[in-house]
Structure formats: C-alpha cells, structure tokens
C-alpha cells in the first residue's frame, strides 16, 4: 500500500501503476465464497461450460469489485474513501489467465463541502482482453487535517451534484 495521497498530488491524466495477478481456480472459488456467492458458475466447471456456455468457471462481480477496491485504495492510501463505482462487464475472467488492472485519473475537483474527489477509469484485462471497465469516484484528503471518512450528511456527496441539485 502506498503512502497517503492528497488531493493536490493528483492531476488529470495521471496513470496508476498496474496490478497483475495470475488467476487460478482458487482465485475464482475463494472470491465467490468470500462474497457468499454460491452460484455454480463460480465453482462448478461442468455447469459453467454446459449450462452457461462459458469456457470455464469465472470471477464473480462482487469479487471483481473487491479487486477494484484493493487496486484503488492501494494507490490512495487508507484515507481514500470510495464514493461510487460503475462496472461494465464485457467478458469473463477465467482460471489460467493473467489479470491486469490499469487506472488513469480523468478528473479531480472539490465539491461544495470542500471534499476532494478524484474521478478515475480503471480497466481489468485478462490475457490482454478487456473484461471489465470501472468508472470510480473516490475522495482523498485535501490536506493533513482532512479525513473523508469523517464526512457525514451533506458533507458526504458520493453522487456528483448536478445543476438541478444546487
């Protein structure tokens, strides 16, 4: 895990160091059971192939979310606080593949409460195939005294405000 990132350290276009992991059947099954997902396509090869029509068991969505979270907060440090994530699943991640997460900052702004928000695009690839893309909104401290985890009520706005909200 990196040192704590502060809002002033972040620039649009910053690239986050990639994270790579060799996916095994254990990765898939452990991730499914950790997220209490008992559906057979995440642990039963025969069901995945002959019922779902996929080539093997595959990583479930909640565990992919956990991988994205780990990747993002490894970069932000522990005071980084997730506000919102949107996943788009394009393909599945199978045992035997090399999974790589890559992230880029696409924007950084403070809201009306002074909270520092970083917008990122993160891509999860398996054997260089794009499997999932994730749009992330994460709060990071604006200075040493600020801590996004202590924000409540109107000081915590995980959905960006629109003109209609103001």
């Amino acid at each position: 895990m990196s040192e704590q990132i502060f809002f002033g350290d972040v620039r649009s276009g910053d690239e986050i160091a990639p994270l790579s992991h060799d996916v095994t059947a254990t990765t898939v099954v452990l991730g499914a059971l950790a997220s209490r997902d008992w559906r057979p396509m995440h642990h039963d090869y025969d069901f995945a192939v002959n019922r779902n029509g996929t080539k093997d068991i595959f990583l479930n969505t909640p565990n992919q979310a956990a991988w994205f979270e780990r990747y993002i907060t490894d970069w932000t440090g522990p005071k980084g606080r997730l506000g919102r994530m949107t996943f788009r699943m394009k393909d599945s991640v199978f045992p035997g593949e090399k999974m790589v997460l890559r992230g880029v900052v696409i924007g950084a702004d403070t809201d009306d409460s002074g909270c520092g928000w970083v917008e990122m695009d993160v891509t999860l690839l398996a054997d260089e195939r794009i499997c999932t893309t994730c749009s992330v909104r994460v709060a990071v401290p604006v200075n040493a005294e600020d801590n996004p985890w202590m924000r409540r009520g109107n000081d915590w706005l995980p959905n960006p405000m629109t003109e209609n909200d103001r």
């Binding site: 990765t27 059971l33 950790a34 956990a66 979270e69 780990r70 907060t73 522990p78």
Partner: peptide
C-alpha cells in the same frame, strides 16, 4: 471473519 476472507481473496492489505 468475512472481512478478512475477502481481503485475503484479493490480497488487500489496507490497515483499516
């Protein structure tokens, strides 16, 4: 327990 199992599944070492 589930928090640790989940963190272990993705090797998340966040001290929180």
């Amino acid at each position: 327990g589930y928090i640790w199992t989940t963190c272990a599944s993705v090797q998340n070492g966040n001290p929180l």
